[in-house]
Design a protein around this nucleic acid. Structure first.
Length: 256
DNA sequence: ATGGTCGGCAACCGA
């Protein structure tokens, strides 16, 4: 089974990029973040034409998550299990024999603001959610735009980024606490090198050229599932296509 | 250089 995650920054603006990606890689499941559209206006047709069904939870202008799958999905639910639920930041399903969670973790804006506190709390609540709903013996996969780069090798300028909400030690500790429940970063299972990034800020016109990126789009599996992960990679090609997202897809293969 | 460019949506907000 092949699973991908992609922060598309507006699903309607990105249909040509997403469908080209689907045709090229034929993932069984594609998790989207920042769809930025209410469910009634979600463009399901281009996905259904390619043989995929859509589980969606969006809102106007901001946030929004979706699971696009060509294998049947069941038990689709949205949101955390305590308030604020943030339904448009978490969607999960049982698909292809795995328990899949797709999240768009709050970005945090600035470490001095309440938004950063909210992000840290959100990751703490996610750990509780995972503890209550899963066991480490299950084949569970947590993917999405996590908005945290786990290690210094996951950002281009670790010292300069220390006060950034995606690399601040408190953010990394909050992520590490979720991971410590019993998860493996499947990209890191198969890739040791630094300079492998999934995000390049639109606002820095030279970020791609200078490889000034971040690895914040992550896939974490329970050991029961990570043991069966045979490959994981960041697909840089969509970055070179017309109207790219500032994020790039991450793909993992599982022998199930 | 506390800038820059996007998407959504119709003035700015969020990233």
């Amino acid at each position: 089974m092949r699973v991908a995650t992609f922060n598309v920054n507006g699903v309607r603006a990105r249909i040509p990029v997403i469908t080209r990606f689907l045709r090229q890689h034929e993932p069984d499941v594609l998790c989207l973040q920042e769809t930025k559209v209410v469910d009634e206006d979600f463009p399901v047709e281009p996905f259904e034409k390619l043989g995929y069904e859509c589980a969606i939870c969006g809102q106007k202008s901001y946030n929004g998550v979706a699971i696009i799958s060509r294998v049947p999905m069941k038990q689709v639910t949205t949101g955390l299990d305590d308030e604020p639920f943030d339904h448009t930041r978490l969607i999960r399903a049982r698909v292809g024999g795995i328990h899949l969670i797709n999240t768009y973790v709050p970005q945090g804006r600035d470490v001095e603001t309440e938004h950063f506190r909210y992000k840290l709390d959100w990751l703490g609540r996610l750990r509780g959610f995972i503890e209550r709903n899963y066991t480490t013996r299950q084949r569970m996969l947590w993917v999405g735009d996590i908005n945290v780069a786990p290690e210094p090798r996951d950002v281009h300028d670790p010292k300069g980024m220390m006060n950034h909400p995606d690399f601040h030690p408190d953010a990394r500790a909050a992520l590490a606490d979720v991971v410590a429940w019993g998860l493996t970063d499947v990209f890191r299972k198969h890739n040791d090198e630094d300079g492998q990034y999934s995000f390049y800020d639109y606002r820095n016109p030279r970020s791609v050229k200078h490889n000034s990126g971040w690895r914040v789009d992550l896939m974490h599996a329970t050991r029961a599932l990570a043991n069966r992960c045979t490959a994981a990679r960041i697909d840089i090609k969509p970055r070179t296509w017309k109207r790219p997202s500032d994020h790039t897809p991450v793909i993992a293969e599982f022998d199930l």
